[in-house]
Computed example of a mutant assay.
Amino acid sequence: MSKIPVSYKRHRFPRELIAHAVWLYFRFPLSFRLVEEMLLERGIVVSYETIRRWSLKFGAEYVRSLRRKRAKRDDIWHLDEVRVVISGHIHWLWRAVDQDGYILDEILQKRRNTKAAKRLLTRLLRKQGVRPRRMITDKLSSYGAAKCELRLSVQHLSRKGLNNRAENSHLPLRKRERTMQRFRSPGGCQRLSTVFSAVRNFFVPPAANANALSRHIHRLQAFAQWNTATILAA
């Protein structure tokens, strides 16, 4: 099925500028006002409210045009949940990353129980299409219960220190949360985290790229594919 392209009609700024502003906002923990200031330094006068509208309209569309990492049967899933307070109410952001730190999925939920863990695992199995070789979690018993309900026959480890990869994956979004002075609504948190993590996935080199040259090549390829995604949206 062909994708319906996003239209840039009735936008007085060129596509390249819109794409760059959206990239700045989602790639780094910047506020709309800081992106406005960075563009102004280059002689481009655009309001932070305009940048906000661009991010809402184009962010998710760009991400849908980016290629996802292909799942493999020998992947290792690291699962974790982090507490997020929104308008005085406690929510839990459930996240799954693989052995390279690539964020596979994340979902904001009100509960921290078996039903919530099962929902995360069900989404993961549907999106990835294959079962992992191993699943690593913290000591929350809900993961084991959800695994049993789904009859998921994979190795499950939950020892202390094994899940640092998933716990560290929360840090970039925590920085973004501080920049925004907390999230305003559950829907806004889910939308931003989905695009923010997808862009981060694309531009941050995997841990296997240990030298400067491989990291440089990875980022050049990411920029090329990002530019292609924004052109496809034209």
Rank of each mutant, 00 (worst) to 15 (best):
L104S: 10
E16G: 13
G188Q: 05
M1L: 12
L152K: 09
I18A: 04
Y8T: 14
Y143P: 13
L171N: 08
T114W: 00
E61G: 12
T230A: 08
N211R: 15
M135T: 06
R12A: 10
K72W: 01
L162F: 09
V22H: 08
L24D: 14
A116N: 03
R95Y: 04
L157W: 09
L150E: 12
L79W: 02
M135Q: 08
A208H: 11
S214F: 01
H20F: 14
R27Q: 09
F183D: 00
A96P: 04
L192R: 05
D105E: 12
P5G: 07
H156Y: 09
L124S: 03
S141A: 14
H78K: 13
F223I: 15
P132H: 09
N163E: 06
Y143S: 11
F203P: 13
E16T: 12
A207L: 14
E61F: 04
I231D: 11
N164E: 08
L171I: 13
V195D: 03
W54I: 11
N164H: 05
W77V: 06
R112D: 11
W23V: 06
D138S: 07
A117D: 14
I44H: 07
L173E: 10
I4D: 03
I107Y: 00
K110F: 01
H11F: 02
L56S: 09
L93N: 04
S193L: 01
N163A: 03
G188M: 02
N201G: 00
L213C: 10
R131Q: 09
T230P: 08
K127P: 01
K118P: 10
K118C: 08
R27F: 07
A207K: 13
Q225R: 10
S158G: 08
G187P: 10
Y62C: 14
C189I: 00
R134E: 04
